[in-house]
Write a protein that binds this DNA or RNA. Sequence first.
RNA 1: GGGUCGGUAGCUCAGCGGUAGAGCAGCGGCCUUUUAAGCCGUUGGUCCAGGGUUCAAAUCCCUGCCGACCCA
Length: 490
Amino acid sequence: MDDTNSLIEQRRAKLAALQERGINPFMNKFTPDIGCGEARAKFEAGELADGATVAIAGRLTAHRDMGKSQFIDLKDVSGRVQVYAQKQALGDDAFEIFKHLDIADFIGVKGTIFRTRTGEPSIKAESFVILSKALRPPPAKWHGLEDTEVRYRQRYLDLIANDDVKDVFLKRSAIVREIRNFFHGRGYVEVETPMMQAIPGGAAAQPFKTWHNALGCEFFMRIALELYLKRLLVGGVDKVFEIGRNFRNEGLSRRHNPEFTMLEAYEAYGDYATMMDTVESLIRHVAQKVLGTLVIEHKNAQGEVYKTIDLTHWRRVSYKDLVREKAGEDWFRVTPEERRRRAVEDLKLGGDIAAAYEDFEVTGAVFEKLVEPTLIQPTFVTHLPKELVPLAKLSPEDPTTVEVFECCINGQEISPGYTEQNNPIEQRERLEQQAGGEQQKLDEDFLVALEHGMPPAGGIGIGIDRLCMMLLGQESIRDVILFPQLKPKA
RNA sequence: GGGUCGGUAGCUCAGCGGUAGAGCAGCGGCCUUUUAAGCCGUUGGUCCAGGGUUCAAAUCCCUGCCGACCCA
């Protein structure tokens, strides 16, 4: 990145030449009165009259030199518009400078809008100023930028070169906005809770450690939002949500980034069933508002649809029924030894089942490896074994299970939801089991809060990154996170 | 952590033992309604890094770095 090459040297020489002429190629201020794409659209729609004067600004993305006249394209977030510069209109000196503008420079242009012979809405330049001289060449003209490493490390180049990438991130922003709108519309309160925690709770995951100098103690980056939001239920904030970053010190993959964005929402007097309705309504709302459809098509590079997700139908089915579909009707009636034998021999899960796995983990592997990846269409998997979920309440109909769901779409878990545990005594027992005897890992402050009384409540979490993958047709989490984690370059 | 693939000009890539290549971009020239403008000319390289084999290495071998995918 500290490299120099002839293209950079040329641009620096142009910069020096401009400065020698008394031109400042990094102007402090230029105020456009309309966006580039906006001007074009309004002209096409007849809202901007032929010959109207406009001031536009943007990045120069292409130029077509005609000798004594020149066409350039200017681009801003609203889109692209063509600018037409003539030597006789700008004058010899200014036109000479105009001709030597580089692709990627930012300029401001004042002129009149008109239509060229080929029908292109264009701005006939009357004057222009250089707003920011680009000292490096842009990566691509029409191939786009392909190098994944450059795309992720220098995402700004990806956004410049690949319009479809920019579209994904603009839509991600819209998705988050609509999530907020949805919850605000239902009377939820949005809050912010600590990211640095003395005891990282609410999930089973490896945390990142950090250190506070003045307090002289260790902190952990949060792995979940849950325990603080429940404190707020205790505090009387009956409908509460937070959208925030979680940090998990685990492997990176196409579906995992060390920091990822989570939504959690809790509603007093709700339960897992009302929260299923909430998740379904939320995702329908977001898809309809952002994408204008409930039928999501994932397309490959050739534009062919290879996967369709239909958000108009949401299946609700128990964990056990799904396991039976894949592993046999009598799966839960045979002995644990027989289940393990079948999983390893018949279902060929030997590589996924450790010798130390308990019986429920054997079934868990069947679900995770054979069921979950097949759940492309929206499916609420309900009534998970109680061993899997320490923070939920037992199901009265089947006390070996808890009142929870996992909403799976696109072959991955998008959202878990529970009838939240509010019995402080049972909660303590479950957390103690989970902590495995490490007393200092128990969040005593949380347990004290529960002892003060938490209303019965339903809660959900939604992985925003995975939701975006599903809605935006991206198969890698790195393509919905602007700056995904990569190993630092030496 | 293991396996597979990849790293060559600013970008996209070819070359796979015998002088470092193409298209586009850049630079110069012609052209005052073009739009992947066109035509003519032309510059540009630590072939990821280091070691080895060889008369000769971008190319074969080893090690390392970075990335993608698959698996754990």
